[in-house]
Structures are given as structure tokens and as C-alpha cells.
């Protein structure tokens, strides 16, 4: 009985210790169009990574994207992302090809459900995972096509906003 207790205790502690949460993060996007380039940064993402299974989830508060122009932020939230209706962009999935015992930088595929603007798409995006001394760094750069997530651009502004934006994620998980 005592042994069983010790085993269960250690297993349950072990299981919970495998889940890492974010220490700091940076999410940015870049839109290149004829008239203006638009970029925005967000430091308020939250994420959990289960190291033993490679399962990962993240959540990005839309209204925390910071732009160079405050009017851009207003339009981004009000007109395009409708952030009051859809306050978060989320991802739930798994790092495929992730080997927690490997110390060197490794390429992984994040496969799962990406939800933006209330629309969920099955995606598969490439990224890297690297163990640092005090943290685990996960990075990814991928393209998001606005039409896939029903984000509409008014015809008058098609020269200002690209149809596809490049998203960069940098997640530092604390150990």
C-alpha cells in the first residue's frame, strides 16, 4: 500500500511537472502591401506545452496587438478582427516530431486547430524547438490567409492591406 502511494504520488507529480507555461512571449505579424506595410506586436500570449506528449495550446488576446499608429489598432479591432466578438486567437494541437530528450534545436510540425476571428481551420505549420539552460524556446513563422478566416478587407483598402500576413511566434516556456 505504501509503495503504491509513493508510486502514485511520484507519477502524479511527474505528470503535472511536464506541463510548461510561458515566461515571456512575442507574437508579431507583418502585412506587406502596395501603399503601406503594417506590423504589430503582442506580448500577452498565454500557452501551455505538455513536454511528454508534445501537446500544445496557445491563446493570443487580439486587443493587445500594438501598432505604430493608434488608428491602425482601432481599425484592426473594430473592423477586421471584431475583437469584442472574438477576443482571442487560439491554437490547440500537437508538436509532431518533438523529442523531449533531444537537446539540440529540432524542427517540428505544429498540427492542430487554429482559430482566428471565430473561424477554426486545421493547420500544420513548421517551427523549431530548442532547450536553453533555463527555458524552452519554440519559434514559428507562418502565413495566414485572411480569407480563410473570413477577415474581410474593404475594396477601397486592398492596396493597404495584404491578403496574406506573416505571423511570427516566439514562445519562451519556463522550466
Amino acid at each position: 500500500m505504501r509503495i503504491l502511494l509513493v508510486v502514485l504520488l511520484s507519477v502524479s507529480i511527474h505528470a503535472s511537472a511536464q506541463k510548461l507555461s510561458l515566461e515571456k512571449s512575442k507574437v508579431s505579424f507583418f502585412s506587406k502591401a502596395a501603399i503601406e506595410d503594417i506590423k504589430a506586436e503582442n506580448y500577452k500570449a498565454a500557452s501551455v506545452l505538455n513536454v511528454s506528449t508534445g501537446e500544445v495550446a496557445f491563446s493570443i488576446p487580439i486587443s493587445d496587438f500594438e501598432f505604430d499608429k493608434s488608428l491602425m489598432k482601432q481599425h484592426f479591432n473594430e473592423k477586421y478582427m471584431e475583437s469584442e466578438k472574438f477576443p482571442k486567437a487560439t491554437f490547440a494541437g500537437k508538436f509532431e516530431g518533438f523529442d523531449p530528450s533531444k537537446k539540440a534545436t529540432q524542427n517540428v510540425m505544429a498540427k492542430g486547430k487554429l482559430t482566428i476571428h471565430g473561424v477554426t481551420q486545421e493547420v500544420s505549420v513548421p517551427g523549431t524547438v530548442e532547450w536553453m539552460t533555463d527555458r524552452l524556446l519554440a519559434k514559428s513563422v507562418f502565413k495566414v490567409k485572411l480569407a480563410d478566416y473570413k477577415i474581410k478587407i474593404p475594396k477601397m483598402l486592398w492596396q493597404n492591406i495584404a491578403e496574406e500576413v506573416e505571423v511570427t511566434l516566439e514562445f519562451n516556456y519556463k522550466l
Partner: peptide, 24 residues
């Protein structure tokens, strides 16, 4: 303890999201 352990093992991707929501 067994329940806690199974809870942890049973945490799926969607539950991870729910967990994030509760922290937000």
C-alpha cells in the same frame, strides 16, 4: 492521487486551451 494522475494524463489539447482560459 490516482484521480489526480488520471486527470493529468487525460488533459487533452482542448483541455489545455480551457486551462489557458482560466488563467486569462
Amino acid at each position: 492521487l490516482a484521480a489526480i494522475m488520471f486527470y493529468h494524463l487525460a488533459v487533452s489539447q482542448d483541455d489545455l486551451l480551457k486551462e489557458l482560459d482560466s488563467q486569462a
